[in-house]
Simulated scan of single mutants.
Amino acid sequence: MIKRESVYKIGVIGKPHGVRGELQFRFTDDVFDRCEAEYLVLDMEGILVPFFMEEYRFRSDEVALMKFCDIDTEERARELTGTEVYFPRAMAEESSDDLSWAQIIGFSLIDSTSGKVVGEITSVDETTINLLFEVKTESDVELLIPANEDLIKRLDAKQRSIEIEIPDGLLDL
C-alpha cells in the first residue's frame, strides 16, 4: 500500500482528449518527465493507486496529454477527471539535487534562531512577488512565512525539514 507521506501532489487530471483514453494532465511539477518515471500515483477515493503511463506529450508548460495503460476509451478516461495526481518522493529525490516547491509540502519548518519547530508547510504561495510558505502550527494557527532563499539556512530532505531565519516579530503577529 502506498502511504500518503511517501508521495507529493504534482497535479490533477483534466478532461479526456479524444476517444482513445487520452487525458489532459494539469501539472505543477514536471518531475515525471525529468526522472523518466514509469507510473504516476492517482488518488482513487482516498486510496493511492499507481497508474502506468503508456505515453505522454506536452501541450504547454502546465498541461500534458497523458495516456495510461488500460485506459482505452473516453468513458474510462472521463472517470479519472478531477483525480489528484501524486509522485513518489523517493523517486524524485533520487533524480535531482534540487527539490521543487511541491516536494517540500509536509516538511517541518524550524526557526533557526530558537531551533524550535514552527509548524508544517501546507503549501507554497507563488502567486505574489514574494514567495510564501503557508505553515500550520501545532495549535492549528496558519502562518505565512517569507520563503526567500537568503532566509533558508538548511534544508534536510531525509529529515523533511527546512531551517529558516524568521524575521524578528513575525511569529508574534
Score class of each variant (00 low, 15 high):
Gly46Leu: 09
Leu109Gln: 04
Ile166Cys: 04
Glu138Gln: 12
Glu74His: 13
Thr128Lys: 15
Phe27Trp: 03
Arg26Ile: 13
Glu134Leu: 15
Asn148Cys: 09
Ala147Thr: 04
Met53Ser: 07
Val31Cys: 02
Lys136Asp: 08
Ser108Tyr: 09
Gly46Phe: 08
Thr83Asp: 06
Gly11Val: 01
Phe133Trp: 07
Ile166Gln: 04
Glu142Tyr: 14
Lys3Gln: 15
Leu23Ala: 05
Arg34Gly: 04
Gln24Ile: 10
Val41Met: 01
Val117Met: 12
Asp70Ile: 11
Glu62Asn: 15
Glu74Ile: 11
Asn130Thr: 10
Ala92Pro: 02
Glu94Asn: 12
Glu126Val: 15
Val49Ala: 05
Pro88Ser: 04
Ala147Leu: 06
Arg26His: 15
Ser108Leu: 12
Asp140Tyr: 12
Glu45Phe: 09
Asp125Phe: 09
Tyr39Pro: 04
Ala64Pro: 02
Trp101Asn: 10
Glu22Cys: 14
Ile166Glu: 03
Glu38Asp: 15
Ile162His: 01
Tyr8Pro: 00
Leu173Ser: 10
Asp168Tyr: 11
Gln24Pro: 05
Arg4Ile: 10
Val19Ala: 11
Ile152Lys: 04
Val135Trp: 00
Lys3Ile: 09
Pro88Gly: 02
Leu23Ile: 10
Arg160Thr: 05
Val12Pro: 01
Gly82Pro: 06
Ser161Trp: 06
Asp43Lys: 04
Glu36Ala: 12
Leu155Arg: 10
Ile2Tyr: 13
Phe52Val: 13
Asp43Ala: 05
Gln159Ser: 14
Thr128Ile: 09
Glu165Ala: 14
Gly14Pro: 02
Gly169Trp: 07
Asp72Cys: 14
Met91Gln: 10
Thr113Trp: 11
Ser108Trp: 06
Val63Arg: 01
Phe87Arg: 00
Gly119Asn: 02
